[in-house]
Amino acid sequence: MKRPKFANNNLYHVYNRGVEKRKIFLDKGDHFRMVHNLFEFNDIALAENIYYKSYELRSHNFKEDNRERKPLVKIHAFCLMPNHFHLLLEQIEDNGVSEFMKKIGIGYAMYFNLKNERSGTLFQGRFKAVHVKDDSHLIHLPYYIHLNPLDMIEPNWRNKEIQNHKKTVEFLNSYRWSSYLDYAGKKNFPLVIETNFLEEIIGKGSEYEKKVFDWLKERGASSLEKSALLE
């Protein structure tokens, strides 16, 4: 797939997966590391700890430091899956998406290889990106990104075939590795994402929760995936 030319104030659905579809997040520490990277590397300044001499985080509850930060992108939504990830990014600095993803790719691969005593490529080539050109595309992406974890408990959710609705709700409300909880009114990783823009479109708190499940019942992801919106 040809990568789009990145322009400031434009939105992009960015994603990548492990080489040979291998798992890239093996435990809670790996998830925390990637979330930490999303925050730490989103800065025009060089990341001092991009190679991580230690793969252990001092604290999972990282806090905003006192240094002046100049973000490369706005992260509007994200989701970490066992063998891949999704990001909804808005470029706000020239070449911001490419620089941010370069930091993410190098930093996480170095951490993962050091921790697991391995070498070589971790990701399946360069990251993929789709330009979000209009509202008809944008309106569906937050739902699609946030519902991806259902693959782990309801493999047919994309075809609107949910076996246990209560279990689905409970699972999404307990899955920490996406921005869903922050939009649903439960602070999870508020320093990582910018919610104001999407909240004006999809709502927040219980309003957003309702819209997510209404979308799941009425549309599902299969029609979206078959269209050009995710390609």
Rank of each mutant, 00 (worst) to 15 (best):
V169E: 11
F25M: 09
G120E: 10
N16F: 02
L172C: 04
V19F: 05
N83Y: 12
V212Q: 12
E170F: 11
V132I: 15
Y208R: 02
I145W: 10
S98I: 04
D94K: 14
D27P: 05
Y51H: 11
K70A: 06
K74H: 14
S223D: 13
S54R: 04
K204F: 07
F6C: 12
Y111M: 06
F78K: 02
N188C: 13
M101Y: 04
V73Q: 04
W215M: 05
G105C: 03
E99N: 15
L89C: 05
N61R: 13
S227H: 04
F100R: 06
L141H: 02
G185L: 10
E56G: 02
L26E: 09
N173W: 06
E231K: 12
N164I: 08
H84G: 00
Y180R: 03
N37E: 04
L141I: 06
F78M: 04
F123T: 00
P82D: 10
Y144F: 15
E231T: 10
I50C: 08
S179E: 05
S223Q: 11
K23V: 07
V35R: 01
H13F: 15
S119L: 03
E207M: 13
I44D: 06
W157I: 03
E68I: 13
G220V: 09
Y144W: 09
K187W: 01
N61D: 15
G120A: 11
V132S: 01
L230H: 03
G107S: 15
V132K: 02
A221E: 06
N188H: 11
A47C: 14
K160R: 14
M1D: 03
H13Q: 03
I106H: 13
R219H: 05
S206T: 15
P155G: 07
V169F: 14
F41M: 10
P71H: 10
E194Q: 05
S179C: 11
N49L: 02
N49I: 03
E90F: 01
N42Q: 07
Y143C: 00
E207G: 00
Y52M: 06
N116D: 05
N42C: 07
E20D: 14
A47K: 06
M101F: 05
N16Y: 01
K217Q: 09
K53M: 06
S119E: 05
F100M: 08
P71E: 12
E218V: 00
K102G: 02
V192P: 02
A7G: 02
M81T: 01
W177R: 09
R176M: 14
A228Y: 09
S206A: 13
N116Y: 15
N16G: 07
L172V: 09
A47S: 15
L26D: 07
E209V: 14
F197M: 02
D43Q: 08
M1C: 02
R118M: 08
S223P: 04
R176D: 14
L114P: 00
